[in-house]
């Protein structure tokens, strides 16, 4: 399980990257993160929305209420053009940390 600080720091690149794959809503995003991390990253459901709203206020993502096939309405989030740019920066920074750690721990680094 990740520490609280790391969960907070990694939420932005994770959310942006998930939305880069297409629009999504809160519940689906949490399921996806849980699945991809093999249960290592466990976000609390209620805390996800303040983060999403902050990203929206920063102009990185946008949102829209839509009717799902269940008949209920859901708020869907999707990436803005600024969000796409932000992913590039995030990617560079996280890979820089990752590669440095890999060198220190003598593991083969991932390609940038």
């Amino acid at each position: 399980m990740l520490t609280k600080d790391l969960v907070a720091a990694s939420s932005k690149p994770l959310l942006l990257s998930i939305l880069a794959g297409g629009e999504s809503y809160g519940y689906e995003i949490i399921q996806k993160v849980r699945e991809l991390s093999g249960g290592q990253i466990e976000w609390s459901d209620g805390m996800l929305y303040p983060v999403l709203h902050r990203l929206e206020r920063d102009g990185l993502i946008e949102s829209e209420w839509k009717e799902a096939d269940t008949g209920r309405e859901r708020k869907y989030y999707f990436l803005s053009s600024d969000g796409r740019k932000a992913i590039k920066t995030e990617r560079q920074q996280w890979l820089a940390v990752h590669n440095t750690l890999c060198k220190l721990w003598k593991i083969k680094p991932a390609s940038i």
Binding site: Y25, G26, Y27, E28, D45, G46, Y49, W65, R72, E73, R74, K75
Partner: peptide, 10 residues
Amino acid sequence: HELEAHLCDA
């Protein structure tokens, strides 16, 4: 509304 939609999905 958003939290309620989430609860229903869960």
